[in-house]
């Protein structure tokens, strides 16, 4: 099985605080990998290290055969690792189509034109095509999340990373987002998901759970679902 991402012995922190301690995992092609854990457990720190927004203290992060550590954040996007930041971050004064256009990188186009790339996103999220000329800031939360995901998919990434995509969405809209993620995965794109919503477990192939920056559990979906820790934290049962 080919890997799209391998994280080895990653440690990172802010000042004296160690946020992530010796974390290792790898994501295979077409896999959905979830990072579980309470707020402050270190999930977002791991994402920030992968995307180049933060430099880790130790460890290696390898994607597509290239070391990501030391790369600038905007360069990571060009290496097939796309990131949907937490909180529906769209360019509010740009139209839907301009939002998508900004993130199109010729070098990652794989022979597709900008038009073809945008149409692929519209096929995945038909709602966006109805809103194509609308300013992104005037759309509903769910539509903005679709746009944020669509924007991250413009370069046909090998790995799509999402930070709490269901946060603040209605249950119905969250369900729709997870259903679309399943379609994206079926297309061969690997997914790294940071999520508090338990629905994400249905989607997961494998994952790990963090507590205070340490890996406390790692395994496939069955192992995660059977874990008491995960049940208590996510499924609300004992």
């Amino acid at each position: 099985m080919s890997e799209v991402l391998r994280v080895e012995g990653l440690s990172a922190g802010y000042g004296d605080l160690i946020a992530v301690h010796d974390v290792s995992f790898s994501i295979g092609q077409g896999d959905v990998f979830v990072l579980l854990g309470a707020n402050g457990a270190g999930k977002t720190t791991i994402l920030r290290c992968i995307t180049g927004l933060m430099s880790p203290r130790q460890g290696r992060i390898i994607a597509g055969g290239a070391e990501l550590i030391g790369k600038k954040a905007h360069e990571v996007a060009k290496l097939g690792v796309s990131h949907v930041p937490e909180g529906r971050r769209v360019f509010t004064h740009l139209s839907v189509e301009e939002n998508l256009g900004v993130s199109f990188i010729d070098a990652r186009a794989k022979g597709r034109t900008l038009r073809q790339a945008i149409d692929e996103i519209y096929a995945l999220f038909p709602r966006l095509s109805e809103r194509r000329k609308q300013h992104a800031g005037t759309m509903s939360g769910g539509e903005q999340q679709m746009l944020a995901i669509g924007r991250a998919l413009m370069n046909a990434p090998d790995l799509l990373m999402l930070d709490e995509p269901s946060l603040g969405l209605s249950p119905l809209m969250a369900e729709l987002v997870f259903e679309r993620l399943a379609v994206i995965r079926a297309g061969g794109t690997s997914i790294l998901l940071v999520e508090q919503n338990s629905s994400c477990l249905e989607l997961a192939d494998r994952g790990l759970m963090l507590a205070n920056g340490h890996v406390v559990l790692a395994g496939d979906r069955a192992a995660l679902e059977d874990s008491d820790m995960v049940r208590r934290a996510y499924l609300g049962t004992n």
């Binding site: 905007h74 949907v84 930041p85 900004v102």
Partner: peptide, 8 residues
């Protein structure tokens, strides 16, 4: 942040 994520 979103601009960075979009490769800008």
């Amino acid at each position: 942040d979103a601009a960075t994520a979009a490769g800008v």
